[in-house]
Design a protein around this nucleic acid. Structure first.
Lengths: 328, 328
DNA sequence: CTGAAAGCGCTAACAA
DNA sequence: TTGTTAGCGCTTTCAG
């Protein structure tokens, strides 16, 4: 049913109907007439047609690498909360860790579909830059710090530094790192750099064989723990780039009689629910994921409303949460 | 930029441009002309305007109660996979466990916005029915079994029965259940019913104080474990409606010197990653979450394409996965 | 194969 | 306050 047909049923003009749905001038009498007809027919205006006129879709595109990750879920909940409140809807694109798809999705949303985009970026290629620079709608990048773009990110470097420092202060001298690929700047490079800074500051060196690159799963953490602990000299502390990886390391230790924290200390990042439930609970750094989502959505919507402005970068802090895995 | 303006730049007519983007008849020559202009200007047709003509948005609404849940994330990944493949986009609505918002969201999507809806339902009220019956686009309900609607669901009853049976076969005689609210039929009622059937079949009774109602978190599982184990007689087996709850129970036992499985057996449902990482790994039932998402999306799209048809119910099986928590 | 023109459902400027 | 009317950007007949 369209507006003309409905107007006929309600016994009013098209404009009256339009005004009814757009808070225009309308007499009580007509309002009642239309309300009754709505109840009867269930008519609602076509959002597409409305968008054609308004040039506004009230839709925000959110591009994520995967869904089954506690951190991403929490971020997305934050985003969704703000969007809901402000009357926007969330168009979710899951790239399934496929970086080409990230580009495709940006292309897809580039014109005429959404009023703004939040990109949970992993790696950042020249292609990303090319596409991002062509996009007409506002974009906020979440979880990475790319100069020249609107970003909301975490203090990955600081969190890694503090945790490593903590383990050194507790007596660790032969530290290992299970990180992720370095082209993921936030989770890969910055967390590794923070780890290294703490080492260097204390005059420690990263021994050969003590640096592993895992993916984001605990299975992978488990596998890399095996490699770490099968060398001749075992590390006495393992810094992991994420809690999931740390959980895998903890599991490996449990199964192989390596005592935590007596034989080896372990920590992760993210303060996930998991870190409280593993056989040895895991010392971690709390990152404000939901807040990041909220801030990113607010940053985006303010640009949607008031037009693009100079790029801002918002970096959120962290809190170290000590648990059993470093308790000595 | 709109089609007319672009057509002028490309040096062709509006219709030619339209045909270019809709695989119509077009000479090589014009195709080249338009392609060049697209590269230069970045023009892409407005999807909203297209929808007005086509009466098709290529958008599917997905309503979920929350994001930070492994099962929901896996389901949604399945949905997203199919939608992507078929050229549909995913409009995500997070109701944040607010059942009123579930209704509102259905109302919102009811007309003219999406081509179909997947509803991850929790409870089912008369209001749900009223709204669902008014909706014009196809709807698939995921995770619950409501006669008369298209549903994809799990064998909650069977899974609970098998797990309880397993514990009884291993010698449990005083069983407890930590479930969730009964108006969530799938997770609450059916899992409890499955549990009870196994008890009854073996001539066992549910002792007073051995039935707790938790929410879906491990914190809640932890709290209810305290109540369970502070009575005079301790159960020798605890069936939990979800893995998260079970993880909380396991944590409580660990902290209070209650040995699993020697003193008490524990199991959950969902075969989550968590169940493999807790201090005592948790026996669980694998539910095919991602498959459920895939099947639901396929079911929905087939109705979108071929029009609504008689309601179908697809129930997926389960597999019991034995781990340490029942290993005796 | 091509372009002109009508029309999708809606909004808003305009005249009443 | 109201109704009429001219678009919004696109697709698709229809006549060439």
């Amino acid at each position: 049913m369209n507006i003309s047909e409905f107007a006929k049923i309600a016994g009013v003009s098209k404009s009256a109907v339009s005004r009814y749905f757009n808070n225009g001038y309308l007499s009580e009498e007509k309002i009642a007439l239309i309300k009754a007809a709505v109840d009867k027919t269930g008519y609602a205006p076509s959002l597409s047609a409305r968008s054609v006129k308004n040039k506004v879709t009230k839709l925000v595109g959110v591009i994520i690498p995967k869904l089954s990750s506690e951190s991403i879920a929490r971020i997305t909940e934050g985003i969704s909360e703000v969007l809901n409140e402000q009357g926007y809807k969330l168009l979710l694109v899951n790239t399934a860790n496929d970086y080409n798809k990230e580009i495709d999705s940006l292309e897809l949303l580039r014109n005429n579909w959404v009023d703004g985009i939040i990109l949970m970026a992993s790696v950042f290629t020249k292609l990303h830059k090319t596409v991002l620079d062509k996009i007409r709608v506002p974009v906020v990048i979440l979880g990475q710090n790319y100069k020249g773009y609107n970003c909301v990110c975490h203090d990955d470097f600081g969190a890694a530094y503090s945790l490593t420092r903590l383990m050194i202060d507790k007596g660790a001298s032969d530290l290992a790192c299970v990180g992720v690929r370095m082209d993921d700047m936030a989770t890969g490079k910055f967390r590794f750099d923070g780890f290294m800074k703490a080492l260097n500051e204390s005059g420690l060196t990263l021994h050969r064989g003590n640096h592993e690159t895992a993916d984001f799963t605990s299975e992978s953490g488990y596998d890399h723990a095996r490699r770490l602990f099968s060398g001749k000299s075992r590390p006495d502390a393992v810094f992991c780039a994420t809690d999931s990886i740390a959980a895998g390391v903890v599991l490996y230790c449990k199964e192989n009689g390596i005592r935590i924290p007596q034989d080896v200390m372990v920590c992760g990042i993210g303060d996930s629910r998991l870190s409280r439930l593993t056989s040895t609970t895991i010392t971690s750094a709390h990152l404000h994921y939901k807040t990041a989502g909220i801030e990113a959505a607010n940053m985006l919507l303010s640009q949607v409303d008031r037009g693009k402005s100079a790029p801002r970068i918002l970096q959120l802090g962290y809190e170290v949460v000590e648990r059993e895995s470093t308790d000595r």
